[in-house]
Computed example of a mutant assay.
Amino acid sequence: MSSFSPMPDQAPSRNVLGQPLEPCGYDPLTGFFRDGCCNTSPQDLGVHTVCAVVTEEFLTASARLGNDLSTPMPQYGFAGLKPGDRWCICAARWYQVQQAGAACPIVLEATHEATLEVVPFEVLLQYAVIPKTLH
């Protein structure tokens, strides 16, 4: 699957490393556009650009801070996340949980460069993991 390009004359999306954006995950199918990538656009008000590998600690802290990602919401086609799932998280929400001391690992290669407008690169680097096969 190729990187998302919102307009035919625009370059493919880039990650926080300045390279073409890699997919984040297909099971569950993630991304604002549900294309498996953490692409964004002006319509993505939440800036769903951080490719996170969620942990139980992250999910619990996120829910405590008002962003429940574990509870299924079938009306939105959302089955709920479980530890180990890769998901495009809102940059500000991931950063909020990180500041609360419960950040989860992230995949830099699949984290959109727009994240850098919200989260410092040095912070992202501390939580980087080597990508594993997509599921």
Rank of each mutant, 00 (worst) to 15 (best):
G25W: 00
L81Q: 08
A114R: 09
M73W: 10
C37K: 14
L108G: 03
G84I: 12
N15E: 06
E56G: 10
C38L: 11
P28I: 04
G31Y: 01
T71P: 00
G36E: 06
V119K: 01
Q96T: 13
P74I: 07
T115K: 01
L45I: 14
V97Q: 13
S41P: 11
I106G: 01
L21H: 08
T49L: 02
G25K: 00
T49Y: 01
S62N: 11
L116Y: 12
G80P: 04
L59C: 03
V54A: 02
E57D: 13
W94M: 03
F33R: 13
T40Q: 11
N15T: 00
W94K: 02
E22Q: 14
F33C: 10
P12H: 12
V107R: 08
D9P: 06
P42K: 08
L45W: 12
V97P: 14
V54H: 01
V118L: 14
C104Y: 00
L21K: 07
Q96I: 07
G66R: 09
H112T: 07
Q43G: 07
A11G: 11
S13I: 07
P74W: 02
Q19T: 12
A114I: 05
Y76E: 14
D44Y: 03
S13G: 14
V53G: 02
G18I: 14
E113S: 14
A91E: 04
G25V: 02
E56W: 04
Q75C: 12
A114N: 10
D68H: 05
P23T: 09
T30G: 06
R34E: 10
W87F: 15
H112F: 04
E56Q: 15
T111V: 13
Y76T: 15
V119W: 00
E57I: 07
F33A: 13
G25R: 03
G66C: 09
P105Q: 05
P23G: 06
F78K: 13
R64I: 13
P20Q: 10
H112S: 05
D35R: 10
A79P: 03
Q99W: 05
Q96Y: 06
V16P: 03
